[in-house]
Design a protein around this nucleic acid. Structure first.
Length: 103
DNA sequence: CAAGGGGCTGTCA
DNA sequence: TTGACAGCCCCTT
């Protein structure tokens, strides 16, 4: 079980309509401080992966891509399709944050 | 082995 | 609220 696989499993557990931050995913994967590594892993996901990578955002509740990039648009669209409401380029972690009230 | 950079974070001005 | 900065860990040069 590699660290990368642990991260995949955690991301896979994020329920539909919820989002988690990179740091949160890292912690749940028992890899505190690996936030940046999580981003690295997401970037190198195999093509056609079923991992809900779009449910992972930064701690500010914002997408870590330039607003005009296609990746940004793709992630935003996927999230909205799951019911996550975007407001002024970001969304409320209070409302959609995963395990926000259990941590 | 050293250096650079990547979908990050928390702190401080 | 925004921007600059210093830590973070890992992979590729």
């Amino acid at each position: 079980m590699t660290n990368q696989e642990r991260i995949w499993q955690v991301v896979h557990q994020i329920p539909r309509g919820k989002v988690a931050s990179y740091g949160q995913v890292a912690k749940l994967a028992e890899l505190p401080g690996y936030a940046r590594y999580v981003g690295y892993v997401m970037k190198n996901l195999p093509a056609g992966t079923k991992l809900p990578w779009h449910r992972v955002v930064n701690s500010q509740g914002r997408i870590s891509f330039p607003r005009n990039s296609s990746s940004y648009q793709r992630q935003k669209t996927l999230l909205e399709k799951e019911g996550v409401v975007f407001i002024k380029g970001k969304f409320s972690m209070k409302e959609f944050g995963w395990l926000q009230d259990e941590i």
